[in-house]
Computed example of a mutant assay.
Amino acid sequence: MQGDLRPALAGIGDEAAVDLTGQLAAMRRLGWPGIELRAVDGVALADLSVHDLRRTVRQVSAAGLDVVCLASRIGNWARPITAPFDADLRELDVLAGQCGAFGTRYVRIMSYPNDGLAEAEWGARARERVARLAERATEHGITLLHENCAGWAAADPDRALRLLAEASSLRLLFDTGNGVDHGYDALELLRPLAGHVAHVHVKDATGGPGAATYVRPGDGEARVADCLRLLLNSGYAGSFSLEPHLVARPHDGEQADASAADRFVDAGRALERMLGELLAPYAAGASARGRS
Score class of each variant (00 low, 15 high):
residue 2 Q to Y: 09
residue 3 G to C: 06
residue 5 L to N: 06
residue 11 G to Y: 06
residue 20 L to P: 13
residue 28 R to I: 06
residue 29 R to M: 13
residue 31 G to R: 01
residue 33 P to C: 05
residue 41 D to A: 11
residue 53 L to G: 02
residue 53 L to F: 02
residue 59 Q to P: 04
residue 61 S to N: 06
residue 62 A to K: 04
residue 63 A to Q: 04
residue 65 L to A: 01
residue 68 V to L: 06
residue 71 A to C: 14
residue 72 S to C: 02
residue 73 R to G: 15
residue 76 N to F: 13
residue 79 R to V: 12
residue 85 F to Y: 09
residue 88 D to Y: 02
residue 90 R to Y: 02
residue 93 D to Y: 10
residue 95 L to T: 01
residue 97 G to H: 09
residue 100 G to Q: 11
residue 103 G to N: 04
residue 105 R to F: 01
residue 107 V to E: 09
residue 108 R to Y: 00
residue 108 R to F: 05
residue 113 P to N: 11
residue 118 A to K: 13
residue 120 A to C: 09
residue 125 R to E: 11
residue 125 R to K: 10
residue 137 A to D: 06
residue 140 H to F: 02
residue 146 H to W: 03
residue 152 W to K: 03
residue 158 D to K: 15
residue 164 L to Y: 12
residue 184 Y to P: 14
residue 194 A to M: 07
residue 196 H to W: 10
residue 199 H to V: 03
residue 202 V to G: 09
residue 211 A to W: 05
residue 220 G to H: 04
residue 239 S to V: 12
residue 240 F to S: 00
residue 243 E to V: 07
residue 250 P to R: 15
residue 254 E to P: 05
residue 260 A to F: 08
residue 266 D to F: 06
residue 270 A to N: 00
residue 277 E to P: 14
residue 281 P to S: 03
residue 286 A to N: 15
residue 288 A to D: 15
residue 288 A to H: 15
